[in-house]
């Protein structure tokens, strides 16, 4: 197995865009020559139901077709999931957990047990509402991931939004996402 392999697990609710966010990371990785794999753990796809998606990133081709059991990074798109799902399940002690919340890491650590894992928070929904006018936390979550892992840069996210993403959406939406990415990068806290 490649030593450069990074395994990521996304927790969200149906309709929040966890799968789209995982796809965005995969696309950015592909644009910069990295190998990747992104897949949802699907099931009854009901809006609002807890869902899980996985992303693998590596410098070498990925041939492992199995669920991620020991993610180095866990992203939680909806803080209400913390009381429903054990988001740290299988994550090693040195894993990072990134939670979309307006609270600080110390505040949520008082309520939920994350063990020794690093906990980061980001008000991604708030940023999305401010910039996009909609509660879609994907883009700021991806920039938080960029800041914490260094797997790709804010500039690369911006390139992706302007080019790939820009093919499907009008400039106004693209620029709002770029702004969301910058705010996400700035506002993530440990």
């Amino acid at each position: 197995m490649s030593s450069s392999l990074t395994e990521i697990r996304w927790h969200g609710r149906g309709g929040q865009g966890a799968v789209t966010a995982a796809k965005m990371v995969a696309e950015i990785a592909a644009e910069h020559g990295k190998c990747f794999q992104a897949f949802p753990e699907y099931g009854p796809e009901r809006s609002g139901a807890p869902i899980v998606a996985f992303t693998r990133l590596s410098d070498d081709p990925i041939q492992c077709y199995s669920a991620v059991e020991h993610p180095a990074i866990v992203l939680v798109l909806d803080e209400t999931l913390l009381s429903v799902v054990d988001v740290t399940d299988g994550a090693p002690a040195d894993a990072a957990v990134i939670v979309n919340t307006e609270k600080s890491p110390s505040e949520i650590k008082k309520v939920f047990d994350f063990g020794k894992r690093r906990v980061y928070t980001i008000p991604a929904t708030k940023i999305a509402k401010q910039t996009l006018g909609r509660a879609i936390p994907n883009t700021p979550m991806v920039s938080a991931l960029s800041k914490i892992t260094g797997q790709f840069s804010l500039g690369e996210i911006e390139d992706h939004l302007r080019h790939t993403f820009g093919k499907k959406f009008p400039p106004k939406v693209v620029e709002a996402n770029v702004e969301a990415a910058h705010m996400g990068f700035e506002e993530v806290q440990e």
């Binding site: 995982a22 796809k23 990747f36 794999q37 992104a38 897949f39 949802p40 753990e41 699907y42 077709y65």
Partner: peptide, 12 residues
């Protein structure tokens, strides 16, 4: 090919 691990996995 198998559901989910292959059918819904995004790859180059």
């Amino acid at each position: 090919h198998e559901a989910f691990y292959v059918s819904h996995a995004l790859e180059p």
